[in-house]
Simulated assay, not measured.
Amino acid sequence: MKAVAIILAAGEARRMAHPKALIEHEGGRSFLQSLASTFGKAGCAVLGVIGKDAEAVREQHPSVNLVDSPRWQDGPMASIKAGLSAALEEEADVVLLHPVDMPAVRASTLKSLLKGVGDAEDGLRPEFEGAPGYPVVLSRALVERLMGSDAVQLDAALQGMKLRRVSVKDPGVVVNINTPETYERLFGTAPRLAPPPKRRAKKAASTAMPVVSSGMEMSASPEE
Score class of each variant (00 low, 15 high):
Ile80Leu: 12
His61Lys: 05
Gly51Ala: 07
Val95Asp: 02
Ala104Gln: 06
Gly27Gln: 08
Gly118Val: 02
Lys41Asp: 14
Val117Lys: 00
Ala107Gly: 13
Lys81Ser: 06
Asp68Phe: 08
Trp72Ser: 14
Ser79Arg: 03
Ala107Tyr: 00
Gly51His: 09
Leu22Asp: 07
Ala82Tyr: 12
His25Asn: 11
Lys20Cys: 15
Ser34Glu: 05
Gln33Ala: 14
Ser63Met: 12
Leu110Ser: 09
Ser85Gly: 06
Val105Arg: 11
Leu22Trp: 07
Thr38Lys: 08
Phe39Arg: 09
Ala78Ser: 15
Leu22Met: 13
Asp53Pro: 01
Val95Gly: 00
Asp53Lys: 04
Ser79Ile: 05
Ile23Ser: 04
Ala104Ile: 12
Ala54Met: 03
Gly83Ser: 03
Ala42Gly: 03
Val46Arg: 01
Lys115Trp: 13
Val94Ser: 01
Arg106Thr: 07
Asp101Gln: 03
Val46Met: 14
Leu96Glu: 06
Gly28Val: 12
Leu114Ser: 05
Ile50Cys: 10
Pro62Tyr: 15
Val100Cys: 13
Val49Trp: 10
Met16Leu: 15
Ala42Gln: 05
Glu55Lys: 04
Gly83Thr: 04
Phe31Trp: 06
Thr109Phe: 06
Val67Asn: 00
His98Lys: 07
Cys44Lys: 08
Asn65Met: 13
Ala17Arg: 11
Cys44Gly: 00
Leu47Phe: 15
Lys20Phe: 00
Met77Gly: 12
Gln60Tyr: 07
Ala45Asn: 07
Glu91Phe: 12
Lys115Phe: 02
Val49Phe: 11
Thr109Glu: 12
Val64Ile: 15
